Computed example of a mutant assay.
Amino acid sequence: MATATNNNEFFEALAALEKERGLPADYLIEKIKAAIVIAVKKDYEVEDENVIVDIDPSIGAFRASLAREIVEEVENPHTQVSLEDAQRVRKSYQLGQKFITQLKTKEFGRIAAQTAKHVIRQGIREAERSAQCSEMQSRAHEIISATVVSIDPERGNVTLDLGKGGSAVLPRNEQVPGEHYKEGDILQVYVVDVIPTERGPRVTISRTHPGLVKRMFELEVPEIYDGTVEIKAISREAGARTKMAVYSRDPNVDPVGACIGAHGSRVEKIVEELGGEKIDIIRWSEDVSEFISAALSPAKVVKVELLPSETKSCRVTVPDHQLSLAIGNKGQNARLCARLTGYNIDIRPESGYYGEE
Rank of each mutant, 00 (worst) to 15 (best):
Y354P: 10
V148L: 07
R339P: 07
V302H: 12
K98P: 03
G261A: 06
H209A: 13
V304W: 00
R207Q: 04
E20D: 14
E45G: 12
I52W: 11
W284P: 00
K98G: 06
S145I: 12
T242F: 03
C314Y: 04
E18D: 12
G184L: 10
L83V: 01
Q87D: 09
V267D: 02
G355D: 03
C314G: 03
Q102I: 11
N344P: 08
R215A: 10
N76V: 00
G261L: 08
F62A: 09
I151E: 04
L23C: 12
R125W: 10
K91N: 13
T5D: 15
R21M: 12
T115N: 02
E49A: 10
K312T: 09
E154H: 14
P251K: 02
I186R: 15
G109Q: 10
I347R: 01
A146N: 05
A334T: 08
R172S: 12
M136I: 10
G342R: 00
T317H: 08
I282W: 02
H263C: 09
K303D: 14
R202N: 13
T5I: 14
I279W: 05
Y44G: 03
N50C: 04
E72L: 12
A334K: 07
Y225P: 07
L323V: 00
L17N: 07
R63F: 11
T147P: 05
Y27S: 12
A258N: 03
I55Y: 04
V71P: 01
I111E: 15
E220P: 07
S235M: 00
E84C: 05
I52A: 14
P24C: 08
G275R: 08
Q332E: 11
R339Q: 14
G276Y: 09
W284H: 11
L66A: 00
V158K: 05
I52K: 15
S82F: 06
T105D: 11
V51C: 02
N329R: 15
L296C: 01
S297Q: 02
L219T: 06
E49S: 11
I292W: 03
Q94H: 11
H118F: 15
K330H: 13
T79G: 00
S138K: 13
Q87I: 07
N329C: 10
E18Y: 09
Q97F: 02
G211N: 08
K243T: 02
S235D: 01
Q87P: 09
T115S: 04
N50M: 00
R88Y: 10
R155V: 12
D280Y: 09
C314Q: 05
K312G: 07
A299V: 03
P349H: 03
R121V: 14
I205T: 01
D54R: 14
P196A: 05
S58D: 15
E18T: 10
I144V: 13
V148W: 06
V169I: 14
E69C: 06
L336G: 06
G211T: 08
I205N: 00
E142M: 10
I55M: 09
P255G: 04
G60S: 04
P153D: 10
K182S: 13
I347Q: 02
Q175L: 05
L170K: 08
G123W: 01
A294R: 12
T105W: 15
P255S: 04
A25N: 10
E223M: 01
I100W: 07
R63P: 03
E357W: 13
R129K: 13
H180W: 13
P210D: 08
V271R: 15
A127I: 02
Y93A: 04
C259G: 05
A35D: 05
V304H: 00
N329M: 13
K104I: 12
L95R: 08
G355R: 04
S309H: 12
